[in-house]
Amino acid sequence: MTRIVVVSAGVSDASSSTLLAGQVAAAITRADATISIETVELRPLAHDVIDASITGFASPRLQHVHDLISQADGLVVVSPVYKASYTGLFKAFFDAIDQDVLVGTTVLLAATGGTARHSLALDFAMRPLFAYLQAVVVPTGVFASPHDWGSEGAGALESRVERAVGEMLSLLGGTGSGRSASDDIDLFSETMLSISDPRRD
């Protein structure tokens, strides 16, 4: 069974990021009802995320979310755009997650902002973050500004969501990057082998 986790970093109640996350999740279910979807809101985890950035380990409930993500095939991430980028909470959440967890995971990027002029934050801020984490990032990102929630933009937003979800499911059905996070210790790395055989070069 394909598993997708939706992470939303919206902070206000009735957050537009959460709204957008719901819209993406609904589109995934419409396309393939067998896919399991779990939605995670970061706001209730905000203190845990900051604690983890100080202590270097996750609280049990934050660890539970890390575990969900590490077992997921795909991830949908949604952040509001503040000051030209994703929010600090969004970044701190991904700072606190293990380095290799997203290797090979298919990630759909989405963001919301007060004006369409923020839309490139998806490609100039969010996309490099997930490239660094060696995820497979879906080509189409979904950005929603107030205009998109109105009657004029709604159709366009919906078609962008459909397109991004179509790309995501296609990637999930393929070979991906051929890589995934591994928890195994590599006994055959150069440094590991040099322990029992000091003369290696």
Binding site: I50, D51, I54, T55, F57, S59, P60
Partner: peptide, 13 residues
Amino acid sequence: YGHGPSLEDFTAQ
């Protein structure tokens, strides 16, 4: 670990 988790959380974890 100061200014982070509570004493109670840290002792539990």
